[in-house]
Structure formats: C-alpha cells, structure tokens
Design a protein around this nucleic acid. Structure first.
Length: 596
DNA sequence: TTAGGGTTAG
C-alpha cells in the first residue's frame, strides 16, 4: 500500500475511516483505538522505515494533533538526523499544544546534534517554565546538550549536581561529556565517584571509562578496567570489547590487542575497523590483510574502514594498490565521504600522484580543515610551496577557520619556498588573530623558516623568548640551519643544548662533526668521530624508496643492492648533471657524512 | 501512541 493511499484511508473525510464517537470506551484492550493513536502509530512506523516525508504528510493531515503526535514527529526528525526540522516542529507546536517531558528530551537532543547552545538554552528555559526539570529524562538530555554545545563542562556539571536521584544514564552521560571533550582525567574522576556512590557498573559506563583511559594513555587504569570487564561478564559485549581493543592498540601494544581480538566470539565492523586503524601505521600490510579477512567473514567495509585502509596504502606508497582500494571506495559509493576523500588526497600525494590528489580535492563538494591541510601538505611535499600558501589564503577566504595543524603546513610551505616574511606574518596571525598558542612544533617550524633563510640571530632570539623549554626538535632545526650556513660557534651551542635534552643521540654528534668539517676544524671533527665510534650507536638511516612494478625497493646511502646498485648510481649521475645544468653547485659533503 | 547513555578515522 502506498503512503498516499494509506493516508486517504486514515483521513476522516473518507467514509471508511473509523469514527470517533462519545460512546467509545478506551479502557478495554478490545476497544477501538482513537484515530490520533492509530495515526501516530503509522507515523512512527514510517519514521522507523526512514520515510520521514511520508510521516510528515500524514502528520499534516491529522485533524487533532496531540502532544504525543508532535513528540513522535520531533523525535523522528531527531533520530533521522534532521535536527533543524525537529526544532521547527517544536516551535510550530508551542502556540497550540503544551509540550511534555518526551517533547523536551527529543528537542534537546536535536539541539545537541545542531551544536546550538542558544536553542538548547531556550529549550532549557521552556522546560523550567513548564516544570519538567524534575524529569530524569529531561535532566539527562539537558546535561548531554550542554556537554556537547559548551566549551567546558560547567553547565553540564551544574545540571548534574542538581539531579537528586541519578540513574545510570546520568553517570554515563557525564563521563562521556568529559571524555569526548578530551578531558579523560575528568571522565575518570566521575567514574571513580560513581563507584564510590555504589552506582552499578554496566557496559555503557565501562566502555566510556575505557575510552577515557585510552585518551590519557593510562595503561594501569586501562588494564584494571579490562579485568573488571571479565569480572562482570562484559567480555561478550561487542562495544565494550571494541573499547578494550582500541585501548590496547593505542596504549599497550598491538600483540595484546591481537590476542583480545582473537578471543572475541563475535565481532562487528567496528571491531575490524579498530584493528585496521591500530595496524595502519606500524604494519600497513597487516592492516590490508585484516581488510581482506573482514570481507571474507561477510562484513561490509564502511567509510571508517576505507579511511584507515587508504591511510595504510599511503604508508606503503604503492600507487597501483591505492587505485585498487579507490576502486572499492567507488564501488560502495563512499567517494563523497569527507573522511575518505581526505585520506585519498593524502594517499595520492604520498604515492607520488599530486595530480590525482588535486582532482579529488577539487571534486569535493564539502571541505573541512583536514581537506585543506591534506592538500597543502601534499603540495608542500611535492615542492609546490607557493601553491600551498595560495591554498591557505583560499581556505581562509572560503570561511574555514585555520587550526594549529594548518599553520604547521603553511609555515613548512613558506620555509621550503623561501617566503620568510610571509611565514612570519602567518605566525603572527596565528597568535593574535586566531588565538592559537604556539607549541614546540610551531616554534620548530618558525626556527626552521628563519634558519633556512640564514636569519639565525633572529631564530636564536625567538628560541630564547619561548615561554617554555625548547625541545630537541626546536634545537634540531636550529642546528640544521647552523650546519647549512656553516656557523660553528652557534652550532656547537645548539648541539650542547640538544645533547642536554637527549644525550647519546648519534645524529647530533654526526651533525656537529660535519659542521666542524665544513669549517675546516679537523681536530674537533676527529674528536666527534671518535666519540661516535665509542658510542657504538648508529644514526637512524634516512631511507629512500622506489616503486618498480608494484613492488617497493628501499635503500639507504652506501647500500649494497646487488646488481641494482649500478642503476641507482647511474640515476644519481644523471640527476647530478641536471643539477649542474640548472646552475647549482651540489654540496656533496653531506653525502659523505651519511656514508661514514 | 511519544524520550535517554557506550565503541572505529582524519
């Protein structure tokens, strides 16, 4: 039966409609239901089936829409991710029908989804006026809304403290509020208080508490809660075990995660996604193996799966493999997902095809700050610094607010393109216009920016003015610049600071020795080399790789690659000729350092 | 006849 036909059958203007007479008694279970109840039931069925517009048509044809019908419609819009329609319906009902606690809990959820504090606060005021703040449903929904819409937990906390008799949802909502905001310690504090007040553990509060442990990297608490999982028999609950797996992947180790994964009797797509994300960086081949296995077991990969699988391919950097995975994305109609598209931009750039990155980026209908950043980093790593900087300006023009990571990208692009003054302007804008507090990474970028351009006194001044102790990455950038510009005095000063922070790092001694060599200080050079030999530790080799027929061949300076080494040196000679053609005199000293 | 909390990415 089509929805229109059904609506006609239900409509009081049609003869087959059940009439509502004053003699009808509703107390008996066999008594006919009033029309509004029947209509609301049909509306609910439509909403459950996802036929939101049909539900609305029927709703609009109802002659007497009571609070239940309105609440069902508002709740339907909210659960079908149409929060603006839910809010509009809420406003429309107010002049005629008095909302109840069901209405408020649904509309507050809509405010949460819209991330709209003004609307949420208005709903709060109305709930107060109508006297529904005593409802635990309304109070919990209010807490949840404030946790999602505010920058801190103060308002959510105030609502929580006002609740006389808290239930398990109250506790879980507050713990989740802190944890999702990034305050895992706050979440765990509430969890501890919950235990002290002898509230019961359940799979909801346990899984969010594990997530809180993961967010603060607490192995001890994480393991402790994992043992609680067994004590309470939650090891068969999939969301709980998914949290446990994620905690092992991020905080403890992949082999432990693997063990728990193997012990799970039942798994869902999130289980597989968690493991794939866990392996994506450290063992991308294993991540791809899991991807194949999940499909063999009958699961359907989703956008989360592909985001991690595409990232794994980016780490392997085989373009052919990337094209295959992209085929899977397109087959499942997921190419419009923002997360997947962002991962594809990064993957293509890392596989060497910046043109494909550009195509994906340009085809995106919606872009977020990650999309712009991925494209900028792609341009930067392909030597197109000016394009990266231009993209930053375009991003700001399009109304996207830059975050700290975008500034890392634009500062790196400026640094590699020699746009020093522009880079300094971006640094100032970051601090004063966007109120982003620079961290070690940002200072490292600015030191690198100034250092590459030879403006080392300014770089040194900046380091001295830092409001916290510079770490080895900041000093490392400075040392690199001293080496490039052959400034021995400043360089050895920087090296001493790096060694104070991280003693025994071979790379620092190596950088220092080449600095001495570049300035003809052979005595100091010999002393450094002797020290290095005595340390017995080696600098981590910088590795290069090339894709040949879908296979990756990696090599380091001085590598013996059998018969292939001749090809490599031939290619290096050709490059050398090109470099000289471009009127550049290559510095071969650095090559010899690496060969030591 | 209408309402609630947890897990995966960038």
């Amino acid at each position: 039966m089509t929805s229109r036909k059904l609506i006609h059958n239900m409509n009081p203007r049609f003869p087959n409609f059940l009439p509502l007479s004053s003699s009808t008694h509703f107390s008996s279970p066999f008594a006919p239901k009033p029309p509004s109840v029947l209509a609301t039931n049909v509306i609910k069925s439509y909403l459950e089936a996802g036929l939101v517009n049909d539900a609305r048509i029927l709703f609009d044809e109802m002659p007497d829409r009571d609070v239940v019908a309105w609440s069902a419609m508002i709740s339907g819009y909210t659960s079908r991710n149409r929060p603006a329609d839910a809010w509009a319906a809420f406003r429309d009902m107010l002049p005629d029908v008095r909302p109840n606690e069901f209405t408020f809990s649904s509309v507050l959820k809509a405010c949460k989804i819209m991330n709209s504090l003004p609307r949420g606060a208005m709903a709060h005021a109305l709930a107060l006026r109508h006297g529904f703040l005593g409802s635990i449903y309304v109070a919990n929904a209010l807490m949840d809304m404030y946790a999602a819409c505010c920058d801190d937990m103060n308002r959510a906390r105030a609502v929580f403290e006002e609740i006389g008799v808290k239930n398990s949802v109250t506790w879980t909502t507050l713990i989740a509020g802190y944890t999702h905001m990034g305050d895992g310690h706050g979440g765990l504090d509430v969890f501890r208080r919950m235990l002290l007040e002898e509230a019961e553990l359940n799979p909801f509060n346990v899984s969010i508490a594990i997530r809180a442990c993961t967010s603060i990297g607490s192995q001890a608490f994480g393991k402790q809660i994992h043992s609680t999982v067994f004590k309470h028999g939650f090891e068969t609950n999939i969301p709980v075990m998914n949290s446990v797996l994620d905690m092992y992947c991020r905080c403890i180790g992949l082999s432990d995660a693997d063990q728990s994964f193997g012990e799970m009797v039942e798994r869902d797509i999130i289980t597989w996604n968690t493991m794939i994300a866990g392996y994506e960086k450290s063992d991308p081949y294993k991540a791809l193996d899991l991807y194949s296995r999940l499909m063999l077991e009958g699961h359907v990969p989703n956008c989360f799966t592909f985001t991690s699988v595409v990232a794994a391919v980016a780490n392997i950097a085989i373009l052919g493999l990337g094209e295959q995975v992209r085929g899977g994305v397109v087959r499942r109609g997921l190419e419009d997902d923002m997360g997947v598209a962002n991962a594809l931009i990064d993957m293509y750039a890392k596989c060497g095809s910046i043109v494909s990155s550009c195509k994906i980026f340009k085809a995106m209908r919606c872009k977020n700050v990650v999309s712009w950043t991925s494209m900028m980093i792609g341009y930067g790593s392909h030597g197109h610094g000016k394009e990266a900087v231009a993209l930053f300006n375009k991003m700001v023009e399009s109304g996207v607010r830059p975050d700290r990571i975008v500034f890392v990208a634009v500062l790196n692009a400026c640094s590699h393109t020699g746009l020093v003054d522009e880079g300094l302007e971006y640094f100032k804008a970051m601090v004063y216009r966007y109120n982003i507090t620079p961290d070690q990474e940002i200072y490292g970028c600015v030191v690198d920016l100034l250092g590459r351009a030879g403006r080392l006194p300014e770089a040194y001044k900046l380091i001295e003015a830092m409001p916290f102790m510079p770490d080895e990455s900041v000093w490392g950038a400075f040392l690199g610049a001293c080496k490039a510009h052959k400034l021995t005095e400043l360089g050895s000063k920087a090296a001493r600071r790096v060694l104070d922070l991280r003693p025994g790092v071979a790379g620092t001694y190596l950088a220092l020795s080449s600095l001495y060599a570049a300035n003809g200080k052979w005595g100091d050079f010999a002393r450094m080399r002797k020290l290095l030999k005595g340390m017995g530790s080696k600098k981590e080799a910088g590795m290069s790789w090339i894709e040949v027929k879908n296979q990756i061949c990696s090599f380091v300076a001085g590598d013996k690659m059998g018969s292939h080494i001749d090809w490599v040196y031939e290619a290096v000679d050709t490059l050398g000729l090109h470099i000289k053609d471009a009127q550049y005199n290559p510095d071969l000293q650095c090559l010899e350092d690496d060969l030591e």
